[in-house]
Amino acid sequence: MLPASLDEAVDALAAAPAAVPVAGATDLMEAVNAGRLRPAALIGLGRITELRGWRYEDGGTAVLGAGLTHARMDRPDFAALIPALADAARTAGPPQVRNVGTLGGNIVTAAPAGDTLPVLAALEATVTLARAGATREVPVSHLLTGLDPVRPGELLTWVRVPLLHAPQVFLKATGRSGPARATASVALVLDPARRAVRCAVGAVAPVPLRPLEAEAWVAGCIDWDGSREIDPAATAAFGEYVAAACVPDGYGAEGAWEAVTEGPSAASVRLRRTVSVLARRALGRALK
């Protein structure tokens, strides 16, 4: 099925609730080809042009179409709007994948290493889920954690992101220079209006994690009225704080000898070091 408008798509989904909506198909077709997924039917969203752009709403919110591709989000006009999302889109994969892979697809696939997810978590974005005759708004984090999942017949249509007009950073650690899956990623945004720093760590857990205490603490260390300066020691401490909050002692120690030893496992020490460096560098770049 290839609906040409949002309404048609929602109707098609209502008529065939077992059908799977498909946009860029970069994750879906891989699963189909590998025989892990046999969808009863597919609803192609590629023709719904209204979902491929964005619009603005009162109150400083950008409403992003679920069909925005990573390549589109990397363009300068979008990067000026939501820089961290542009950074995440740019590093999300090879050009072939970024040309077709969409924002909505990244959210619905909800891979632990999904690059846009920590950014959306840090931005406290919400998503619009549409079904025939009704829509509802759900925070991205509720969707990802399964607190409020997508229900049968619902289609993810829009992503609401607040425009903060302040520095934002997305950093990811990989083992290579070419595009790769993150071993850890950190998204950090400044919200000068609320005098807040919001941060999310991706790829270390099934969903992005928010170190709320570390955010609150570091927000108090920043001189918001002046040049937004911070003591370098506080930046470093913030890194450690985030890492300790997001990586548990027993990380990666399933049944291994590390599980019975006391203190953090070797894997968790390594991952904490990585997360701490990323968080420190992210804060440093945001306040530069």
Partner: peptide, 15 residues
């Protein structure tokens, strides 16, 4: 400069 970690990556020239 293309730093370790690639373009748009987390590389920091100081490190």
């Amino acid at each position: 400069w293309l730093l370790p970690g690639g373009p748009g990556g987390a590389g920091d020239p100081a490190a």
